[in-house]
């Protein structure tokens, strides 16, 4: 029974992908807009990421509406997620995770959903498109500087660009730019290449063969979400710690 259900679900998923991929593999860099919102054209991936944002926001609002000191099942699960993210940030930055959890946790949760949404028939990951990953990388780029300035003051933060020598300032600036570019390309490349592999396998091997590859894609998406959030934390931690030689140990 379970095997039949699995086979039916797999066949449905795979045939949906076949239906989408009847056309030759389209360019991953250009996507035609599906409708225009005023002067701004909206593509399918933008609409998907709007939908994910709205769903996550609504779920967070509904699930945290009635919090109690003695947590029920849902609240315990939510607290587990938040405290795990808190713990990871504390381990990496060596600081109180309070100011960083909203950004890093949101990035992680959004990316988990956005990378895994490929499993839903007819929906494509917004992170397989350049505009989404570029937007996320820019968010990280700017928030690193905001956190750095907030922790060290403008003067203290800018000073670390000319240390140990003003000769190295161009290299500091270059590394800020290239690591943002790398952040963007890493996520894009992983998710998009998985989609291309899936498209190739579907066009060669038909129905049930792509199912294990789709399962592997879930794993890849989870790992990439973790890596993106972790690298954002590392960058923020480095920007915040410019004044101290070593991270301060925080009491658990």
């Amino acid at each position: 029974m379970a095997a039949e259900v699995f086979a039916v679900i797999g066949a449905a998923l795979a045939s949906a992908h076949v239906a989408v991929l009847e056309a030759p593999v389209s360019s991953p860099f250009a996507e035609p807009p599906i409708f225009a919102f005023g002067p701004a054209p909206v593509t399918g991936s933008t609409a998907t990421s709007f939908a994910i944002t709205a769903a996550l926001g609504l779920a967070s609002f509904l699930l945290t509406r009635r919090l109690s000191v003695a947590p029920g099942r849902t609240q315990a699960a939510l607290e587990l997620i938040v405290s795990t993210i808190d713990g990871e940030i504390r381990d990496v930055t060596g600081r109180d995770p309070g100011p960083y959890t909203p950004l890093v946790g949101t990035l992680f949760l959004f990316l988990v959903v956005a990378n895994s949404v490929e499993i839903v028939p007819l929906v494509h990951s917004p992170t397989a498109r350049l505009e989404t990953t570029m937007a996320l990388a820019l968010v990280v780029f700017f928030s690193v500087h905001v956190y750095g300035v907030r922790a060290n003051g403008l003067h203290g933060y800018v000073k670390h660009f000319v240390q140990p020598s003003p000769l190295l300032a161009p290299i500091h600036v270059l590394s800020e730019l290239t690591r943002t570019f790398a952040l963007m390309m890493r996520l894009l490349g992983n998710i998009m290449s998985h989609g291309l592999v899936l498209a190739t396998v579907v066009s060669i091997a038909g129905l049930l063969v792509p199912v294990p590859i789709m399962a592997f894609g879930l794993f890849v998406g989870l790992v990439q979400a973790y890596i993106f959030a972790m690298l954002a934390t590392v960058y923020i931690g480095a920007a915040v710690e410019t004044q101290r030689a070593r991270p301060r140990e925080v009491a658990r």
């Binding site: 990496v92 390309m185 890493r186 490349g189 992983n190 998009m192 890596i227």
Partner: peptide, 30 residues
């Protein structure tokens, strides 16, 4: 600690392969 550092390091190494993939895709599609 080791596996967290490993993940970050693997991401850095993997970025190089991803750059090659991006160059290939640019050659093919853009």
């Amino acid at each position: 600690t080791i596996s967290r550092t490993l993940f970050v390091g693997l991401a850095m190494i993997e970025a190089i392969a991803i750059y090659c993939l991006v160059i290939a895709l640019v050659l093919l599609f853009a």
